[in-house]
Amino acid sequence: MCGAELSSLPDGVQRVARLLQDQGHPHLPVMLDDAARTAQQAADALGIAVGQIAKSIVFRRRADDAAVLVVTSGDRRVDERKVEALVGPTGRADASFVKARTGYSIGGVAPIGHLQAPVTLIDRELFRFDEIWAAAGHPHGVFRLRPQDLERLTGAPVADVAQEPGA
């Protein structure tokens, strides 16, 4: 992607694309025809298993008002007790908090390129897959990566933060 191609993308996707380029990541964002605000919508649009979607869930840490980003597999739910055991008490983050801290709207929160660096946790369930897809800063934008790439790009620890299937 060259500068002209980047400038035609939404701002959030441009930010993600530049970061990926700077890190030498081999896959730049792609724009889907339809919005992929949910993991299921993204998986359907890409023709992949919903578990291959790296969904970004943002919480608000009570002690210091920090954003806590949990990146988990699209077929799993975050276990808030497990997250709190690692980072302290949290609460749900509303849309305005998410936008102010990350620079992205809910439904397009990328795991990288946040306005303010969040506390980030990567769910180990993503490592079931060789290839995953994450939001690229816009509800229509996604990018391909491996779980190991996510770990490298974010510098975040891998943790057990998902509910048990069927819980």
Rank of each mutant, 00 (worst) to 15 (best):
M1L: 11
C2F: 08
G3C: 03
S8G: 15
L9K: 12
P10D: 08
D11W: 07
D11V: 07
G12I: 04
Q14L: 12
R15P: 04
L19K: 03
L19V: 03
D22I: 09
Q23M: 13
Q23S: 15
G24L: 06
H25W: 09
H25T: 06
P26M: 15
P26Q: 09
H27W: 15
H27Y: 12
L28W: 11
V30N: 11
V30I: 13
M31Y: 02
M31P: 00
M31C: 03
A36I: 12
R37M: 15
Q41A: 07
Q41K: 01
A42L: 08
A42Y: 03
A43P: 02
A43V: 00
D44T: 06
D44S: 04
D44P: 01
G47S: 05
G47P: 02
G47Y: 07
A49T: 05
Q52D: 06
I53L: 08
A54Y: 08
A54D: 10
I57K: 08
F59H: 07
R60W: 10
R61P: 12
R61W: 06
D64V: 02
G74C: 08
G74V: 04
D75H: 09
R76V: 10
R77Q: 14
D79W: 14
D79M: 03
E80F: 03
K82L: 15
K82R: 09
R92E: 03
A93I: 15
V98A: 12
R101A: 14
Y104C: 14
S105Q: 15
I106P: 07
G108A: 09
A110W: 00
A110S: 15
P111S: 01
I112V: 10
G113N: 00
G113K: 00
Q116G: 04
A117G: 06
A117S: 13
T120V: 07
E125M: 13
L126Q: 04
F127E: 10
R128N: 07
F129D: 06
D130E: 03
W133Y: 05
A134V: 00
A134E: 05
A136T: 02
H140E: 11
V142P: 05
F143Q: 02
